[in-house]
């Protein structure tokens, strides 16, 4: 865990700063159970409590809840068949800010973010309880038009997934499916979205080329351009840099920084540095539960729980 350096230790942070140029450790293969074992060594720990399925209260710092919420999550629970994967999650994603979801592998970050635009509907065995709201509108419930809902939410996935068509068509995809045929409008949206994703200068001369010819980082920024072309109310980024090299990762992070304020972003990341660099708020999850949620600074520098501190400083995870 050497690259998950604790920002609380200024000395180590200094030495580790160049680590930004090295490939971040993104695919944490360590099973969550081993983390649990580690904590079991310390009797009465919170992780052990979670592992045993006992009730506990998530710590939500009050200063995280001041802003207007774009996504509100209330007592959200999710089951894959018989297995419960998310337990009573409640927090809200503030408007115009970047909210990061961190936690060890298998903690349910991706599951949670995919619930926001109901991508989990595609999985047959999923059952949910509780509620989520997008700007006050219920996301779950009978009679909710999922298609309409998804049009209001942009999503970028772990692996860049440009469609096998031209760059231009990729960007204006969401308009195309709405039946927009006005060439002028499409071109306008294409340019503004590509500019918004910081890709315009690189591809403006080859908009007709296949998107598959782009590099991985460019593809991911193209996906971001595609997501923001629809003017989404919230942008979901599911580990957007996990398949990218450090330079491409850096550009994406800069981009997320630029998007801050324009869009509400919910980002899942494995990379502690990334979370600390790009996000305003951070939620730490463990084994399907929200452990601690608060402003990023607070969570990284003075978390309420020792477990959070352990995780963000890399002592565990």
């Amino acid at each position: 865990m050497s690259d998950l350096n604790p920002p609380t230790d200024p000395e180590r942070m200094k030495t580790q700063l160049p680590a930004r140029a090295t490939r971040p450790r993104n695919a944490d293969a360590k099973p969550a159970a081993s983390g649990a074992e580690k904590t079991r060594a310390r009797p009465g720990g919170l992780f052990e409590c979670i592992a045993e399925g006992r009730q506990f209260e998530s710590v939500v710092h009050p200063d995280a809840g001041h802003d207007e919420a774009v996504v509100e999550i209330v007592d959200f629970r999710l089951w894959y068949g018989e297995t419960q994967a998310l337990h009573d999650i409640s927090f809200s994603v503030p408007k115009g800010k970047v909210t990061a979801l961190i936690g060890p592998s298998g903690c349910g970050k991706s599951t949670l973010i995919r619930c926001v635009n109901r991508m989990n509907d595609l999985v047959d065995s999923v059952r949910v309880e509780g509620q989520m709201k997008l700007n006050g509108d219920a996301i779950y419930g009978k009679g909710v038009d999922v298609i309409e809902l998804r049009k209001r939410i942009g999503m970028v996935f772990q692996k860049p997934n440009p469609f096998p068509m031209s760059i231009f068509e990729n960007v204006v995809y969401s308009l195309r499916i709405d039946g927009v045929r006005d060439r002028h409008a499409l071109e306008e949206v294409c340019e503004s979205s590509l500019r918004g994703a910081g890709l315009w200068d690189e591809v403006k001369d080859r908009l007709k080329d296949s998107a598959l010819a782009l590099s991985g980082g460019q593809q991911q920024r193209l996906c971001i351009a595609r997501a923001i072309a629809a003017e989404p109310e919230v942008l979901l980024l599911d580990e957007p840099c996990s398949a990218l090299d450090p330079i491409a990762t850096g550009r994406i992070e800069d981009l997320i920084d630029d998007l801050k304020g324009l869009y509400s972003v919910l980002i899942v990341t494995h990379n502690m540095q990334q979370a600390s660099r790009v996000s305003d708020n951070t939620a730490f999850m463990y084994l399907g539960r929200l452990v601690e949620y608060g402003p990023t600074e607070t969570l990284f520098l003075s978390p309420s729980l020792r477990e959070t501190e352990d995780y963000v400083t890399g002592r565990f995870g």
Binding site: R152, G154, M155, K159, N161, F163, Y173, L236
Partner: peptide, 12 residues
């Protein structure tokens, strides 16, 4: 990923 990308963009 392609299917999700499209569905995620609000396509039917």
């Amino acid at each position: 990923a392609l299917r999700e990308g499209s569905l995620g963009a609000g396509a039917t």
